[in-house]
Design a binder for these strands. Sequence first.
DNA 1: GCCTGAATAGAATATTTGTTCCAGCATATG
DNA 2: CATATGCTGGAACAAATATTCTATTCAGGC
Lengths: 278, 278
Amino acid sequence: MSDTTPDTAPPASMEEFGTRLTQVSDRLPKRLRQCADFVARNPERIAVSTVAELAEAAGVQPSAFMRFCQIMGFSGFSQMQRLFRDSYAQRWPDYRTRLENLKSAGNGSPSALLAEFVEAGRNSLEKLAHTVEAGALEQAVEVLAQARMIHLVGMKRAFPVASYLSYVFDNMDIPSFLHDRVGNLDHRHAILPGDALVAITFAPYTHETVELATYARDKGCALVALTDALNSPLHRLGATALMVSEVDVGAFRALSATFSLTVALAVAVGTRRNSRAN
Amino acid sequence: MSDTTPDTAPPASMEEFGTRLTQVSDRLPKRLRQCADFVARNPERIAVSTVAELAEAAGVQPSAFMRFCQIMGFSGFSQMQRLFRDSYAQRWPDYRTRLENLKSAGNGSPSALLAEFVEAGRNSLEKLAHTVEAGALEQAVEVLAQARMIHLVGMKRAFPVASYLSYVFDNMDIPSFLHDRVGNLDHRHAILPGDALVAITFAPYTHETVELATYARDKGCALVALTDALNSPLHRLGATALMVSEVDVGAFRALSATFSLTVALAVAVGTRRNSRAN
DNA sequence: GCCTGAATAGAATATTTGTTCCAGCATATG
DNA sequence: CATATGCTGGAACAAATATTCTATTCAGGC
C-alpha cells in the first residue's frame, strides 16, 4: 500500500457518509469532534459553503476541518462537497451526452427508448421534490378549495393534464369547467368572480392559454399555474405557480412528474373541500 | 450616475428574480436567451455549480453567462449565486427527511401528498421496466408503423393518455384519429381495414373502449392495447398488449409510468415510420 | 517535572474559479 | 453597399478558495 492510498474508499452516498460518521465520531479528538457534530447538525450547509465559512461556524480552524474530511475518507474538502452537491440534485440530466446516447444506443430499439424515458421520468420526479415549494403548493390548494368553480385550461401537450384534472375533480363532485375549445367555442364568459382558473402551459407557451388566464385575472379570479420555468408568462399575471420541468429525451418530454403533481394537487383540494363541507 | 452604478438594484429574493427574468427575457440576444431559459428551467443548479459548469450545460461560454448575470442586475455570478445559496439553505431543512417524514406523519398536508405520489411514481416506473416485454413493445411499434391510420380510444382516466398520443402523432405528421366521443358522436365508420387501433383502458374497464376495440378487430384492424393487467378484456381480443400498472396512493393513481410508456411508444413509432418514408 | 507523541493554529502555497478585456463576427441601419 | 452597433468567443487576469506545511501547544506516561 503506497503512501497516498487512503485507508478506506470515500463514501459514495449519503447513507455511507452517515454510517462512516457514526463509526468514527466516538474516537475523535476535541476539534475533530466539533467538526463531526457540526456536520451532523447542518448537513445542508456543506454543499453551499466554503471551508472557511464552515470552519468558523463550527468553531475550528480551516485546517482542522480539512483533517476531518480526510478522516471521513475523502481526499479533501472538495471531494466531500461534491458528494453533497450531487446528492442535492441527483444526477442532473446532461443534455448533450444524453442526446448522443439516444442517437447511438437508441438505434431504433423501442426497449432502449423506453428505458430512456423511464430514467427521464425518475429524474423528473426527483427534481419535482426540489422545485415545488411547499408554500406555493399549500397556497394553490387553499385557493382552489375556496373557489366556487374551478376552470381548467391547457392546450397541446398540456391538454392531457387539464383533462385529467377535470376527470379527477368530477369524481370528487367538485364543480369544474374544462375549456377545451371544442368547436372553437370560447366559453370565457363562464368565468365569474369567485371562480378560480388552473392554467397549464409549457414552453413554448400557448397563446390562448395565457390569454384566457389574463382574462380571468382581470375578472378578479384566482389563478393557479402549472408551468415549467421561472420565466413563464403566467408568472407575470401573479399566478400561484407550481413549477414542474420534465427531463427531456431528445426533443421529447413525457409528463411523468407533471401527473404526480397534478394528482397530488387534485386530491389535496378534494380532501380540503370535503372537510370544509362537513 | 457613476460608471459602476448598476442600472437597477439586484434582485433580493427569488420572487424578484423571477419578475426580472420575465421582464428581460423577451429582448435578449441568442446566447443570453439561452442562459435565461436554462436558468428558468434549472434554478436549483445555480446554488451548487460553477459558472463553467452552468455555461456548458446551457451551451454558452462562461463569459456569456457572466453578461447574463449582469443584465439580471447582479455585479457578477458570485452575487447571483449568493441569492440562490441563501434560498437553498432555507428550503433544505426538510429536504432529506421530507419523503419519509411527511409520509409517515400523514398529516394531510399537500406536500405530504405530493411526496406520496412522487414515491408512487418512482415505484411505478421501476415496475414498468420489468413488466413491459421487449417483444410486445417491438411488435406494437411495428404494427403501428405499418398502419395506414392510427385510431386512438381512451375514456375517463385513460383519456389523457389517448389525447397525448394524438398530440404527439400529430407533431410527427402521423395520421391519427382520436375517438373522443365529443357530442356523443360515434366515428367507428372511420375505422377501415389497414388501420390500427390503440385502445387504452384500466380497471374497471370502460365498456365503450372495449366495444370499439371489438369492432375494429372484426374489421380486420390491428389492435394495440395499453392496459393494466393480464385479465384485461383487451387480451381476449388478441391485442398486442402493453401492461403498465400504477402504484396507487389510497384510492388514487397517477399516470407517471403510463406516460413514460406512451411517449416511448409514440417516439419509436414515429422514428420507424419516418425512416421507412425516406 | 520532563519527555514523547499527537493535535492544533496560523501562515504559506497551489489550485480552482470568477471576472474582465479585446479582437473578430454578425446584425441592424442609413 | 458602407457604416455603426452590438454580440460572441476565447484568452488573460484577478480573486477566492482549497490544501499543505510547520512551529507551537497540549495531554499523558515515565
